[in-house]
Design a protein around this nucleic acid. Structure first.
Length: 404
RNA sequence: UCCGCGAUAGCUCAAUGGUAGAGCAGCUCCCUGUUAAGGAGUUGGUUCCAGGUUCGAGUCCUGGUCGCGGAG
C-alpha cells in the first residue's frame, strides 16, 4: 500500500467524501489546506490548528529552499519543525519560479544555457513583477531563476525539486511543473503542458528511486493545459497514467482571468483513474471550493483566508465583509453569527475593527483564524452533506446566503 | 506693554500676484499552488477675521484676533 491513498466513503454524483490516509494521520475530505509557505500559516501557531479545524497544511519548496532549508531539515522536517504532529504537504516551487520571475516575454529557450536575458521567459502575471530585476529562464531541463530576496542565481530541475521536497519531508508533495497564466495562447499552453509532462515523469522517477522517501511520502503529478479543454483532458490522461499517488489541478484560478480556467481544469477529473486523490492548487474562494468538490476535488489549498484576513477581508455566511470599514465601529456582534471559531467565540466586530484601525497585530491574527476556520468548516459541511446525500441542497443553501 | 514670527484640508506642510496642492488620516474597493500586516481608487478648503491696492490677492498694504518666541 502506498503511504498516501484515498478511501472513498460516499459519492454524490461526482462529489465524494473520503479519508486521505497519510503517514502522519488521516485527512477527512473534502478538506481545506491552509498555505504555510515558510513553515507557518501566517499569524497562526500550530497549537491553534485543532480549534480551527486544520487537518493539514502546505509549505513551499521555493521559499524554504531560499531560506531555512537546513534548519527545517535538521529540525525533523516541516511538520516536526513546526511542532505539528499531523499531515503536511509541500508545493514543488514550480508556481513560484514562474510567478516571481520577471522576464515577461513569451519565448521559451529550447536549449539550456543559450538564452539571453532579452529572450528570457516568464510566464505568469505581469502584475506580480517588481523592479528588482528578476528573471526566470525556462529550458527543457529546468528553470534558472533569481532569488527575490537577494537577486542570486539559482536553478531548479524536477530532480532538484524532488530532492528538496524529500528533505522537507512532507507526507504529500508535488511534481515540478511549468505553471502558465490562463491568458496564454494555445501554443504556449501546449508547450508548457508537454514540458510539464516530461518533468512529471522525471519527478516521479526521482522519487521512486529514493527507497526511503518513497515509503514515507506520496507524490502528486500536476496537470496543466490552461483554459483549453482538449489540452486539459490530454494532460489528465497522461499524468493520470504515470503512476502518481495523486493529482493536482495546475494553473491559476483568479477571477480576474474569467471563470473558465477552473471549469476547464475540472474537466480533467473524468479522465483520471477512479479513486486517485485530487488536489486543487490555489482553489480557495467558497464558490470555487463548492464547484471543485462537486466535481470530485478532495483537497484545496489557498492563501485566501490568511491573505484576506491580514488585509481586513473576512468571510461570513452572508458574504465577505471589510472589517476596517466604518460600519463595524460600534458593532458588538461576532464576525459571523453562529460561528464557532475562537475569534467569534470571544470577540466582537467592533473589537477586531478597532485592532485593524490601530494597526495592532492581533487584528490580522484574529481575522486569519476566523477565515481559516470558515473554510475548513465549509469543507467539513460539504463532507457531511455528501455523506448524507444532501450535497445539492447544501450547496444551494450556502450560495443563496453567501451571494444573496 | 513692545519687537519678531506664524495662521492654507482632520493633522503636518506646499503653492514668482494668475485654475489652492501633497503626504498622512478619513471613506471605499481589490486580493485564488503568498516577494503581500499588501495594493488601488477617492472625499475633504469662506486659505484666521474686516477692510484696502490690483484686471486678478493664499501671496502686497492697514487694522484686528489667536498662537509661538524674545525683550521688559
Amino acid at each position: 500500500m502506498r503511504p498516501v491513498h484515498l478511501t472513498i466513503e460516499a459519492k454524490h454524483s461526482s462529489a465524494r467524501a473520503g479519508v486521505l490516509h497519510t503517514p502522519h494521520g488521516d485527512i477527512l475530505t473534502p478538506a481545506f489546506v491552509p498555505v504555510a509557505t515558510k513553515a507557518d500559516i501566517k499569524g497562526i501557531e500550530s497549537a491553534k490548528f485543532p480549534a480551527l479545524g486544520v487537518q493539514t497544511l502546505i509549505a513551499n519548496t521555493y521559499h524554504l529552499y531560499l531560506s531555512g532549508l537546513e534548519a527545517v531539515e535538521k529540525g525533523g522536517g516541516v511538520a516536526k519543525f513546526m511542532n505539528w504532529n499531523g499531515p503536511t504537504m509541500t508545493d514543488s516551487g514550480g508556481f513560484q519560479v514562474f510567478s516571481l520571475g520577471s522576464g515577461f516575454g513569451k519565448k521559451v529557450s529550447k536549449f539550456s544555457g543559450e538564452v539571453s536575458p532579452e529572450e528570457a521567459v516568464s510566464v505568469f502575471d505581469e502584475d506580480l513583477a517588481t523592479a528588482h530585476g528578476k528573471l526566470a529562464i525556462i529550458d527543457d531541463e529546468g528553470v534558472s531563476f533569481t532569488s527575490h530576496l537577494d537577486g542570486s542565481l539559482h536553478r531548479f530541475t524536477p530532480e532538484r525539486s524532488v530532492e528538496i521536497q524529500h528533505r522537507l519531508g512532507a507526507d504529500i508533495f508535488f511534481a515540478f511543473d511549468q505553471c502558465t497564466a490562463p491568458t496564454d495562447t494555445y501554443e504556449f499552453q501546449k508547450d508548457a503542458m508537454e514540458r510539464t509532462h516530461a518533468w512529471a515523469k522525471r519527478s516521479l522517477s526521482a522519487h521512486r528511486q529514493n527507497f526511503d522517501a518513497n515509503t514515507k511520502q506520496g507524490i502528486y503529478g500536476i496537470g496543466q493545459g490552461g483554459q483549453f479543454d482538449d489540452l486539459r483532458r490530454e494532460s489528465a490522461r497522461t499524468i493520470g497514467d504515470m503512476g502518481f499517488d495523486g493529482f493536482g489541478l495546475g494553473g491559476s484560478f483568479s477571477r480576474k482571468y474569467g471563470d473558465h480556467s477552473l471549469q476547464s481544469a475540472l474537466a480533467m477529473l473524468t479522465e483520471l483513474p477512479e479513486g486517485m486523490p485530487v488536489h486543487g492548487l490555489g482553489v480557495g474562494e467558497p464558490e470555487d471550493i463548492l464547484l471543485g468538490a462537486e466535481h470530485g476535488v478532495d483537497t484545496f489549498d489557498c492563501v485566501t483566508p490568511t491573505r484576506n484576513g491580514r488585509n481586513g477581508g473576512l468571510y461570513t455566511k452572508k458574504g465577505k465583509i471589510q472589517i476596517p470599514n466604518a460600519e463595524h465601529q460600534y458593532d458588538y456582534s461576532p464576525i459571523d453569527e453562529g460561528c464557532e471559531c475562537p475569534t467569534c467565540q470571544n470577540h466582537t466586530r467592533a473589537y477586531v475593527h478597532h485592532l485593524f484601525r490601530t494597526r495592532e497585530i492581533l487584528g490580522p491574527i484574529l481575522a486569519s483564524m476566523h477565515n481559516v476556520y470558515f473554510l475548513t468548516k465549509l469543507c467539513s459541511d460539504i463532507r457531511e452533506s455528501i455523506l448524507n446525500g444532501q450535497f445539492e441542497q447544501f450547496k444551494e443553501g450556502f450560495l443563496n446566503k453567501y451571494q444573496g
